[in-house]
Amino acid sequence: MDLNISPIIRFFLIEGVPFETIILILMLPIIATLIAFLRQVVGIKAFGIYTPLIITFAFLATNGLRYGVAIFLAVIFIGMLMRFILKPFRLLYLPRVAIMLTVVAVLILLLLVFGGNLRRTGLASVSIFPILIMITLVEKFVAVQIEKGNKTALILAFETLVISVAGFYIASWGALIKLLVAYPWVILFTIPFNVMIGRWTGLRVSEYIRFKDIIKKL
């Protein structure tokens, strides 16, 4: 990283802020803007803005995308399975989520042991915080499952995964990292851009698809 480094970044580095941290923080507004754009203009809902954002960073912090995706899918799978298992017990919401979290935690632990056993040390050495973040995904999933049903919850989970994977690639895109290091102020451009999409009243891409039959018949 010899190239063009903005004086302010240089100052941060001298003060002892790790380079990785600076990049992650500068990436945050860009990923957030991407999620806002996908929601308002394209129509990909996902689980709000917080979940895909935090999952993106969890992916960035795991060693390689595939372990992140594997853990993500495992969590969703347990969420689905536990709904059927817990249904006859008719439990109140929080205890039910607590049971799910327990099961997910145990499963993730098994997954890590299994990975270690297969000499997939990458999986076992994933740091704890991204794993914890993804375990809490189950609550979001269950909440949507109760409110809108299984199908919607699955669709939203899938959308969250797509956004997070896209976010992962953008945040690890060399050219963008170089740009941010050289001109960290560009993140301020996300503000006028968000003002613009915040006032966007046109149909979303998803709505063009949803209404395509009736648009022809109008």
Binding site: W200, L203, R204, E207, I214, I215, L218
Partner: peptide, 9 residues
């Protein structure tokens, strides 16, 4: 025609 429709936004 799509102008006639009301979208979420």
């Amino acid at each position: 025609n799509s102008q006639k429709l009301l979208g979420m936004n």
